[in-house]
Structures are given as C-alpha cells and as structure tokens.
Design a binder for these strands. Sequence first.
DNA 1: AAAATACTTGACCATTTTAGTTGGATAAAG
DNA 2: CTTTATCCAACTAAAATGGTCAAGTATTTT
Lengths: 164, 164
Amino acid sequence: MRLTTKGRYAVTAMLDLAIHANDAPVPLAEISQRQGISLSYLEQLFSRLRRQGLVDSARGPGGGYRLARPASEIAVVHVINAIDENVNVTRCGGQADCQDGDPCLTHDLWCDLSNQIHEFLSSISLQQLVERRTVREVAARQDSRQQTIKYKAAGTERDFAVSS
Amino acid sequence: MRLTTKGRYAVTAMLDLAIHANDAPVPLAEISQRQGISLSYLEQLFSRLRRQGLVDSARGPGGGYRLARPASEIAVVHVINAIDENVNVTRCGGQADCQDGDPCLTHDLWCDLSNQIHEFLSSISLQQLVERRTVREVAARQDSRQQTIKYKAAGTERDFAVSS
DNA sequence: AAAATACTTGACCATTTTAGTTGGATAAAG
DNA sequence: CTTTATCCAACTAAAATGGTCAAGTATTTT
C-alpha cells in the first residue's frame, strides 16, 4: 500500500488550494507556511499535479497555482494517483502473479481491500472536504496564525502568540 | 499506512495454518515451502503471533504451530495488529497533533479512511477465507506442488513439472 | 531593461524500514 | 544422544522515505 506522507501532503496542499481559491492564484510559499510543508518538496509535488492536469500554474509576481477543475470534480483518489501513489495493497499490483506466476493464497483478499479503499477515496471530493466544519476550523486557525507571522515579519511590535 | 509484505506474509501464513489444521501441528518448514516465505522470517512472525496469543506452539519432532482459537474467531485485522502493523493512515497515529500539536487539515479524512479499512479487515475471518473457492484452488495447487517437491527430494525418477 | 517573483529540474542525502540472514540455544521425541 | 523442531538475538544489504540544495527558466512589474 502506497499511502505515505507524500500522498497526504499532496491532498493537504490541494485542499489548501481549494480553500483559498477565490480569485488570485495561490503561491506555494503560502501553502508551505500554512501547512508546514517545505517549499521545495511542494514544488516536486505540484510539478506532478500540474503534469496530471489537476492544477494550472501562473508565473511571475502575483502568480501561483489554481485548481484546474472545480473542487467538486476532484476526488481525493485523483490527487493520490497523480502523485504516483497507487492505492493497491497487493504485492503483485493486481497482476495475480504474486507467487511464481500464480496468485498467492491471499491475493483476492488484498484485491478486495484495494477496491474498498479506492471506492472510499473516489467518493470524497475536495469540495466536500472544504464544506466540513472541522476542516473550516482548522483552516481558520491556520489563516490567523499565518497572519501573525506576516505581522511579525513586517516588524510590528505587537506580540501575537505564534505557535504556543 | 502500515500494510506491507510483513503483514501480508503473516495473514498468508495464518491462512495456511487454518487450511492445514486437521490434527497435527503444522511446522513452519512446511508453510515456508508452500508459501515461499523464508523459514527464519516466518520464525520472527510467529514469535509475535504466539506472544499475542493467536497461535500455540509445540516443540520437538512432530511439533509446529496450531491456531489458538477457531478460525472463525480470528479476523484478518487481528493478525495484522499482532504483527505490529497498525491500519492507521494518519500521520499522528490518531493523536490529532499532526501539525505542531494541532490536527492537520486532512486529519479527519485519514481517520475516516483508517476506520473503513479497520472495519473491512475486522469483518473477514480466517474461516471465511478458507471457505472461498479461489482460496481452496490456490491451496490445492500449492499442496500438489509441495508433494512433487517431496517426491523430487526423495529421489524419485518420475518427472513432475514443478514450477513451469 | 532590470529586478523581483515564482516555477522547473535534477542531483543529492540522512534516516528509517524492509526483508531478510546468521548463529546458536532449548526442548521433546524416538 | 541424535534428530527435529521451536525460540531468540544480533546483524545487514537494499530500498524507500522525506526531504534539501543548487542552478536555472519564465514572467511580470516597475
């Protein structure tokens, strides 16, 4: 099963994009700050997401990334697939040749599980996540924290508790 | 998500045990042959399975392992848990402190997925697997192949196609 | 045109995990 | 007392993970 930090980061970043998709493209530096993901790592991920047609990019000042489709038409599984993590828990990748060219004893079991996971992640769109109360709460917290960091960076004297 | 070869091997070995559980305990050497898993690796796995109370062991000639409970009372998820692979896909292991002590944006999503997987693997017992037609077919093939290997080892002249 | 901003690409790397191996100790059966 | 089998503890090569670093390319603002 390939579902690691990489895939989770990609989904998190795409969700951040969906949340902040109002008008202007979102630069990766902002996502990096809000989500605590290193900028260069995000660049790697978005390179793939763009090649897979999930996001559009805009260069230059004021540039950044945008969702290529409405959030309601992007399922979580699309993001994970784009990032090259397939949701298959079989050893053979579904080839049924796990044991010397023949299926192993538990081949079907892992196939069934893979299908379960795939269906589940297909059934959830970014839009649905955006609408969740818990997601909105976390996003609000992240936005305010980011704001305080901006103030701090600007050299304001006011003391906003940043990470306590 | 921790669901790798280790967990798959453990489930496969336990299923082999369930299939060949008639009277005598099953030695790991047989499972090793049938399932193509190295003996010493199996020993590691069964050490855990025994400590977790899923199997009973008998030493000495004629010894081996037995299921500690009826196959109908052992779910796949028990085996995977015993082997120390937890079916949790969150980064924080469900602690909800994925981002500096607070839940990350996608925390709930991964929790939901973890629950899905857990429920699925809880709903399937070794007994149910034993009764599957495909499993019985694979087991029959493995048994006959093992038989030919035994003949070969005994120095019989007859040529049984072993792995072609 | 210059500077600033942002994306692109590829190489690199430390750490952890995986999937075992090696080597032996212990126990029971014959 | 030898064989068969489990038990146990180190050790390890290779792969994957989760990034960083450096150098460059493209675009827009001023």
